[in-house]
Design a protein around this nucleic acid. Structure first.
Lengths: 152, 152
DNA sequence: TATTGTTATACTCTATAACTATA
DNA sequence: TATAGTTATAGAGTATAACAATA
């Protein structure tokens, strides 16, 4: 029998939203099993891999508005996963670094996240996986370009 | 220069979330230009194409919890885009149908949505577009299967 | 008993405006 | 004046528990 959402399913935007929505529920479980959320995991990843980062850089990299980053960083800091030190050359800035605990938790969580990620795409051939990532990248770039141009 | 989110970008889940997030901002603009939201548009689509639908069927088709559907249907009803009539054979049920106004608005909005959708994927070849939709469908199915199985 | 629609509620993500302290 | 971080706030989407009417 024809599904009710046949017309919608022909739209890439609809399938993106549906696939992402259901996938994120599973990622959410993995994150929370390690005391993290999607946003805290992403931020921790950046801080672990680039010690001394500032919030403004994280915001740009992850497309998170600066006000929304405050509680995320606070969360990581409260858990003792990162340190905040005033930048010596610009006292408006905090330099963020992962603690030993933060690095350990990140590696553990990352492994679990990668396991889930691999499981979600393991029905695709290696070529299909590559094409998927490439297509998603192109859509993201196209959408970013649209944003700059207004609506064209 | 290497982007800060190199490790994250290797994850399909991260790229899904990023591409979807930015794409949805544009869809949101298109929807709101027609007085709709993503959820009201999706529901209107189902109601236009299957007159007499019930909320419970819409909820299942769109993966929206029943309580969250109430205000969506109310929104469409308040705008005069759909009618609610008590089902003659089961008085618990409302049968939902699009009004003339609802059908007209839907066709206009759908065209605009399809234009945006086409624009977002027009950097992909026809083959790439087909593979993308297929891959997204497979990921969605895989995630739904995981949900049933628990975590395996 | 079970189901349909509903109310109430709460949590998350996201977005904007405006403040402070520094530069 | 511009920027980094912050506060306050508001809008969506999403989740669960519990209720009334009906089956």
């Amino acid at each position: 029998m024809k599904p009710l959402d046949t017309t919608l399913r022909a739209l890439a935007g609809y399938r993106l939203q549906r696939a992402t929505g259901i996938a994120m529920l599973h990622f959410k479980d993995v994150f929370s099993a390690h005391g993290l959320r999607r946003t805290t995991f992403s931020c921790l990843s950046l801080i672990v891999e680039t010690p001394g980062l500032r919030q403004s850089q994280i915001g740009k990299a992850l497309a998170i508005e600066r006000p929304n980053l405050v509680s995320v960083i606070e969360d990581l800091h409260n858990q003792g996963l990162i340190s905040k030190t005033v930048c010596p050359t610009d006292r408006r800035v905090f330099e963020l670094r992962a603690t030993e605990k933060g690095r350990g938790l990140y590696q553990t969580a990352l492994a679990a996240v990668q396991d889930l990620d691999n499981d979600l795409i393991d029905g695709l051939s290696k070529d299909e996986q590559d094409h998927l990532l490439s297509a998603l990248q192109k859509i993201e770039q196209k959408a970013i370009a649209r944003e700059r141009n207004g609506s064209g």
